[in-house]
Write a protein that binds this DNA or RNA. Structure first.
Length: 463
RNA sequence: CGGGGCGUGGCGCAGUCUGGUAGCGCACCUGUUUUGGGUACAGGGGGUCGUAGGUUCGAAUCCUGCCGCCCCGACCA
């Protein structure tokens, strides 16, 4: 993309409503614009990041054998009356009336809808196990939205639902989700720690929240510092293997890590004092196993081998995709702006032309742009007729991990400058060498994408 | 919802106390100049001062209602 043809309304000054770094930087980098309290338009740069995160979530879900679909944002009140939550949910649910005076609502979550779909089409234990998910906008009329997209009223969330014949099967689904979530967050450059949590209104005996440590987080957390050394990494895993998934769960949840809701001082004190930590965290996901809590009242059963109806065991799992944009920035920025992890950056490299209009510099930039594009990478080329300082400041603000600077002085020696946003270190090298290095840097991320999703258990395909 | 604060060009603000017909910086447009970390100069466009009503010869400014937004708290992916 050429910056002169893009829409990137960056701000030099910070709008006064923004309190925390991620909100300030998202506004300044032209990623979002507030439409009303807790509701945002996603401008091109922000939308690009949101889509990248969405794609990573899709890839990792499908890799785990989960099946994508899409449910509507607007739902009928009838199903919610059936589950009993129409009255229970309270003011947080946005209620709407259509022209025929029917009670509708903007979905805050989808347990009712998915259960309705399930009971209409699944009748046999042979159809299990099944995990369906979608990534869709939700609305919760928060009392006080704040922190930009971190606590919006409208938010983009992946929510998935597993249906299993037995509790054992459902717990394997639970473990499988834990593994897939670990992979997902790591690909986004985040360390999200699974912590024992409270079931809340969704309920459930087993539940973990995934938290990214950050001073601006809204949750208070307590953990054994050893847990921060754990990495899922590039290891291979068979998602159908009960043992393998169970082993990962044990590895990542055996050390103390809890939110304030479930914190137990007595158990915490068994952790050696030097490793005890209390901090703040941003909740970016949660997984639940809740058994037959919805399947029984809503009559979601399958016929077992003996021909008798059995209520299915269910769990649900969520990743706050729009919140993750903020969480990643909270975890990765400096005084100059955002620093995107390589896996989620909106553009792979910035090209800065220090002498726009100079035939040699223009030609060199065009060549770099074409080469990177041919490699399947997306460069952002600052071809505006602006002073160097302004170009650098913009690149720093929007946080692309790598920048190639082209100027007449370097071109005399046949070199360009490759700069890391993270370290600020620059190295001079011939243009082809710079392209090679960038291709190497992004190769692992492209490999992750290229891994085939495991064979799925149904005829559904992802288009 | 309780407590606090704020609405003045796209953004950041001054002006409000003490009424006299709107200003500064950034951004934007034109020209010249400059370009290796937010160039300099000159000229220019853009605001019914959130909104409705009231007081007054006269309201951004005083009074009343309403709307919106932000911060602290209870609640949440």
């Amino acid at each position: 993309m050429r910056l002169s043809r893009y829409f990137l309304p960056v701000l030099k000054e910070t709008p006064s409503e923004a309190q925390i770094a991620s909100h300030r930087l998202m506004l300044r980098a032209g990623m979002i614009k507030q439409a009303s309290a807790g509701i945002y338009s996603w401008l091109p740069l922000g939308f690009k990041v949101l889509r990248k995160l969405e794609n990573i979530v899709h890839q990792e879900q499908m890799r785990a054998g989960h099946i994508p679909m899409l449910m509507p944002t607007i739902q009928s009140a009838d199903l919610w009356r059936e589950s009993g939550r129409y009255d229970d949910y309270g003011e947080e649910m946005l209620r709407i009336r259509d022209r025929h005076d029917r009670d509708m609502l903007y979905g805050p979550t989808n347990e009712e809808l998915i259960t309705d779909i399930f009971r209409a089409h699944v009748g046999s234990y042979k159809d299990l196990p099944l995990t369906l998910y979608h990534i869709q906008w939700k609305f919760r009329d928060e009392i006080r939205p704040r922190f930009g997209v971190m606590r919006g009223r409208e938010f983009f969330m992946k929510d998935g639902y597993n249906f299993d014949l037995t509790k054992e099967d459902a717990l394997h689904s639970y473990n499988r989700h834990l593994v897939s979530y670990l992979r997902t967050y790591e690909r986004m450059g985040l360390q999200a720690i699974p912590m024992r949590a409270d079931g809340g209104p969704i309920g459930g005996d087993y539940t973990h929240e995934f938290l990214v440590l950050a001073d601006t987080g809204e949750s208070e957390v307590f953990y054994d510092s050893e847990i921060t050394d754990l990495r899922f990494g590039e290891r291979e895993i068979d998602y159908d293997s009960v043992e393998q998934c169970q082993a990962v769960l044990e590895e990542f949840t055996s050390r103390y890590a809890r939110t304030d809701e479930t914190h137990d001082e007595a158990i915490f004190n068994e952790v050696p004092e030097a490793r005890r930590r209390s901090a703040r965290g941003i909740e970016v996901g949660q997984i639940f196993y809740f058994g037959t809590k919805y399947s029984e009242p809503m009559d979601a059963t399958v016929q077992g081998p003996d021909g008798k109806p059995v209520p299915v065991h269910m769990g649900s799992h969520g990743i706050g995709v729009s919140r993750l944009v903020g969480a990643i920035i909270e975890a990765s920025h400096d005084d100059h702006g955002i620093i995107w992890p390589e896996g989620v950056t909106p553009f792979h490299a910035g090209i800065v032309n220090l002498k726009q209009g100079d035939a040699e510099a223009d030609a060199a930039c065009d060549a770099l742009y074409a080469s990177l594009t041919a490699l399947g990478l997306e460069p952002l080329y600052d071809d505006r007729d602006e002073r160097a300082g302004g170009k650098f400041a913009t690149m720093d603000l929007i946080g692309l991990p790598w920048r190639i600077t082209v100027g007449p002085r370097g071109l005399k020696n046949g070199v360009v400058e490759l700069t890391s946003r993270k370290t600020g270190e620059s190295e001079e090298m011939p243009p082809e060498k710079a392209i090679e290095k960038i291709a190497e840097i992004y190769a692992p991320h492209h490999r992750m994408v290229a891994v085939e999703p495991m064979v799925q258990r149904s005829f559904h395909t992802w288009l």
